[in-house]
Design a protein around this nucleic acid. Structure first.
Lengths: 348, 348
DNA sequence: ATCCGGATTGGCAGCGCTGCCAAATCGATG
DNA sequence: CATCGATTTGGCAGCGCTGCCAATCCGGAT
């Protein structure tokens, strides 16, 4: 009867895989198969505009028969706005960024958006490059991490006219939407907590602060609040590598070698603190009697340690989700401070 | 002189942000500004075909002056193959999948490809949906996790004619490219190791095996190899939740309540094992004398514990990178077994 | 039977770019 | 100064879809 269906595997009878010679099926093929116009097929597939029930059935039957998959590349080009959101994160090694992704992609999906992800390795030049690369997909919005960007990145972001959400930091001016919490205040809160508990010989173990600006802000806040309490860091150890359990363990070891009478250690994050805890366990240092430990992020693992880690819980998943929703909603520029929660734990 | 440059912020003098009225800059604008043809601009920007040095300079100047960002949506539609690879992973909560992403995106970027990521939450129906969604971007290839897919997913994958790489499992037939290692063999090796060390009352602590098929294969291999050694599991605990430190800690606690004389615990992965280790620490159970622990994945954290975790290191980053390279290379279907490495550690 | 308003439908011009092909240009040669 | 091959360039037809607009259809009112 109809030749349409024979076109499915046009010029390629060899079945599975190797569609080399197979012409891809387009909306026009579906229209021909269903004996309706192209725009009708388009309307039915997007449930947009009006069409009769009978037409819907015919189109859907044709789609099923041909195994048609709409081409979103073409769809996006033809329509005005894209349904894409670009997400730029510094790292995939630290679980906080997958957390952020998780919140964002879940919310995005609900709104019918797709996300494209790029990783900068904490390098601002790479950030500029990946922002350029993401912008070339003409996204409806961009989610980036932190407020610090090099001038090229800022220029591109601004010039593109694309909505931008900056995440996980509220200490400074934002470009558009800002969702997060104050890293500075988190550092301060940590210092006040340790000082209030009576610790006096406090040290810092951190990773590369020139790249991780948020960790640098926590460090600054911590130092300042310590100063206000009449205290000062009695020692610090910065490892050159990214944060890790290993860096925390070795960092604490080095610091203790130099400052044996340390009574509390503030770590740049929970991974580092976990490493420090392992060092204490391995060397029989009583926590927190001999040495108190304080982290940052509030990872699950800290809660499950024999002694729950004293730390600050940050709403990472929520930040991703909130940013995604705000971008989709298209409201005005805004700063959303989600706050953080100090967890007393048992290590400090 | 030339009106081109005045078009940059056409109809919008108010500067920064809110490009509402601003007409996006297209390749045609650049061509006009540089006083060359569109195809010349296209050639220069892609360094493809031939053009004089003088022309290159003029085009680049025009691009810089206008702040032009190529539109890859249009570029992809116009050219034949896309430079997109879709990546489907079950979860972002477990660090192994970000590891895989890391390897894949790094390799992909080097080859000039962009990746689009989707998460299934270990749900085969969601996998089918996200595969469909990714296919609508007409990717050059797809990276999926595992070999088990529901019939709809397989059909879509096959029908699309797109290259597919299935990762982290070699125990079964693949669709096209397969990169990973045998989970079954990993389970067997773990069992042989424990049996060889003289452990006799061995238990299993795992998460939801109906969803995580690879963990199920390790479990099966473990049981079988135990059987060959004349042993059997003396108890097992399956938590309904996804794997986590918490699940491991509570799982071991429950199991020990039921089987107090357990002498070794095999966990579905390192996160679970870490939880188990914490339980032992918290309750003063000597490891490995009173209870031996064995994990899976070879996470960094296991290596840094006071006693390094006995586990199996899996090449996750390498698997991602290898799959990406094979997809880009476009060679024939293949199975690449990257193997795994048993780490003796000190907990078993 | 005729007319009317709303529901439904099809045609077609782009979206911004690439790929093809023909035209123009250049430089060296006869 | 004409000629020829190689290099460089521009024009334009799509890629597959959406959005607009005009055409058609339908059922009830006149």
């Amino acid at each position: 009867m109809d030749e349409g269906i024979n076109e499915v595997f046009a010029a390629d009878e060899e079945g599975v895989r190797d569609g080399a010679g197979r012409r891809p099926i387009t909306l026009a093929d579906v229209a021909r198969e269903a004996r309706v116009g192209e725009s009708t097929v388009s309307r039915v597939l997007r449930s947009h505009g009006s069409f009769s029930e009978k037409t819907r059935a015919r189109v859907e039957a044709a789609v099923a028969r041909l195994g048609y998959v709409p081409n979103r590349i073409a769809g996006t080009l033809a329509s005005t706005g894209s349904r894409l959101i670009g997400i730029v994160i510094p790292s995939l090694t630290n679980i906080v960024f997958p957390d952020l992704l998780r919140g964002a992609t879940a919310a995005l999906e609900q709104e019918g958006f797709q996300s494209v992800i790029a990783v900068t390795d904490y390098d601002q030049d790479r950030e500029e490059a990946v922002v350029g690369s993401l912008l070339s997909w003409r996204p409806a919005g961009l989610i980036v991490t932190g407020l610090e960007h090099n001038p090229g990145t800022r220029r591109r972001l601004l010039a593109s006219g694309v909505r931008v959400a900056e995440l996980l930091d509220t200490d400074g001016p934002g470009l558009d939407i800002v969702v997060g919490y104050s890293n500075r205040a988190a550092g301060e809160a940590s210092a006040r907590h340790l000082a209030g508990r009576g610790y006096r010989r406090i040290g810092y173990i951190g990773h590369d602060l020139t790249k991780d600006r948020r960790a640098a802000k926590r460090y600054a806040g911590f130092r300042d609040a310590l100063g206000e309490a009449g205290l000062a860091l009695v020692g610090e150890e910065r490892v050159a590598s990214p944060s890790s359990v290993e860096a925390g363990r070795h960092g604490l070891e080095s610091l203790l070698a130099r400052v044996p009478d340390l009574d509390a250690a503030y770590f740049s994050n929970d991974d580092m603190a976990l490493g420090g805890y392992f060092h204490c366990l391995a060397h029989g240092l009583a926590v927190p009697e001999r040495l108190a430990l304080f982290g940052y992020n509030g990872l699950d693992v800290g809660r499950l340690m024999p002694q729950p880690l004293a730390t600050i819980r940050t709403p990472r998943v929520e930040a991703g989700a909130t940013a995604a929703r705000l971008l989709c909603a298209g409201g005005p520029a805004a700063v959303v401070d989600l706050g953080f929660e100090l967890i007393e734990g048992a290590t400090a």
